[in-house]
Amino acid sequence: MHGFDLLAVLSNPDFARMLWRGALVTLVVAAGSWCLAMSLALVLLSLRLAPVRIGDRLVAAYVSYHRNVPTLVQLMLWYFGIASLLPDAVQYWLNDHGAETIYGILGLGLCQAAYFSEDLRSGLRAVPPGQAEAARALGHGFLGSLRYVLMPQAIRNALPALVNHSVSLFKNSSLTMAIGVSELTHAVKEVENLSFRTFETYLIATIAYLAVSLVIMGVGAVLQWRGQVMGAR
């Protein structure tokens, strides 16, 4: 047994490099899946708003699958299940281009899109109906009303939920280690195996995750504060 010593991990260049690389992959996975989730959420939302009933049904099914099946299972389905259905050429290409990371981003992004789209939808429902009427009365079409009048307010309403779900998305990036993505938790596990410094390595991971989560929440708080300065109703 040796005493608590953070530097024993951090001052070892190999360990430090592994942790640093892991942290970068975590940021790439989180940022990539966030962008995918947000763009897809907007698509899902517009399908829900479209006057076609089938679109609404499809999105409802999509949302309930992604909200009710564990994220880890969804990731494994992508990596082990969907991947095996792809043509060989595509599989080889993916394997040469970091298949794990790509599937990780896809799995997390598709899952989180369900949450983001619901956040935006409830934000939109909270906009008073008079706003849509005023936009229509001024001659804005459906898309113009959404873009210039309704969505800016919906996003502001949805901000607290979007921030919470962004933090979960960031934390869920650690699940991708189960499909072999060499992100931070994966790197921590390796460093722990090599250094036998269990407490120190997990402490480092804890601090790193906590720091980024707090930054996300801080950004959210600033955005909300700016919204309030403008004068929320």
Binding site: P128, A137, G139, G141, V149, P152, Q153
Partner: peptide, 20 residues
């Protein structure tokens, strides 16, 4: 219809200004 509406000034009881 949008073009026609854009030519009809309408003032609501609840103002409905865009708060953002």
């Amino acid at each position: 219809l949008n073009r026609l509406r854009s030519r009809i000034g309408f003032v609501f009881q609840s103002f409905n200004l865009f708060p953002h």
